[in-house]
């Protein structure tokens, strides 16, 4: 059996989290059922499928798209998506002339109600360091080549506004219905690190 210096935190991260959870349960600061419900909400009910619905609706309904681009929060709420980390939304549109890319250089701000929880790379140092200073190199690592005639706009989420990219509707999708269009929309296309293609 290893001897522990028990005034230091356990080096095993899982043990240290378990210790904190036990303490907060014992003190009545949290309830076990509440913790389970929170995990379930973000693991099963909220994710990029929500944002994909918003995008497909905007592609097929010009009036909705206009509302979405002028005042995103109520337009997104029309489809039932609202909540923590999406209280004040801004949607930016990709066009043949403009490509948008989202980042949070200071922490990891991300629009949870429409995209779910962020992937590890979005929260990690390389992306946060480089997205503002060399976005085209970052995009190239994602396999996205943006022409010199296109303006790259990077949005650094430094305040409480949360951003989502409205990607361009791919060519060749004229015959698809809304559900088929939704299925084309990827998480990364709504961050700005992917372009979409018809399948």
């Amino acid at each position: 059996m290893a001897s522990h210096d028990h005034t230091e935190p356990p080096s095993d991260i899982a043990l240290r989290v378990k210790a904190l959870e036990s303490l907060l349960l014992d003190k009545g600061l949290v309830e076990a059922e509440t913790l389970d419900a929170i995990v379930d909400l973000y693991e099963h009910n909220i994710g990029p499928q929500n944002g994909a619905r918003v995008v497909a609706r905007a592609w097929t309904d010009p009036e909705y798209k206009a509302r979405l681009l002028s005042d995103a929060t109520p337009a997104i709420a029309e489809l039932g998506y609202r909540g923590a980390q999406g209280e004040d939304m801004v949607v930016v549109e990709n066009t043949p002339e403009v490509h948008n890319l989202l980042v949070c250089t200071l922490c990891s701000c991300y629009p949870w109600p429409v995209l779910g929880l962020p992937p590890v790379w979005y929260k990690a140092a390389p992306y946060r360091a480089r997205a503002v200073s060399e976005p085209r190199a970052v995009l190239a690592e994602f396999g996205v080549d943006i022409g010199d005639d296109v303006e790259v706009r990077v949005w650094d989420s430094t305040a409480e506004l949360r951003y989502m990219v409205l990607p361009e509707r791919p060519a060749g999708t004229e015959g698809l219905d809304v559900e088929e269009l939704e299925a084309l929309v990827t998480r990364d296309s709504m961050i700005g690190t992917a372009l979409l293609e018809a399948r």
């Binding site: 378990k18 929170i38 995990v39 693991e43 929880l117 992937p119």
Partner: peptide, 27 residues
């Protein structure tokens, strides 16, 4: 800081302790 290390088919949480940590903070 190095290259972007994007994971294919990334799970929402990578370990049970991440689930618990996420929920403890939000609660």
């Amino acid at each position: 800081m190095g290259p972007i290390d994007a994971e294919t088919d990334e799970p929402i949480f990578h370990a049970e302790w991440e689930r618990r940590m996420f929920a403890l903070m939000l609660a």
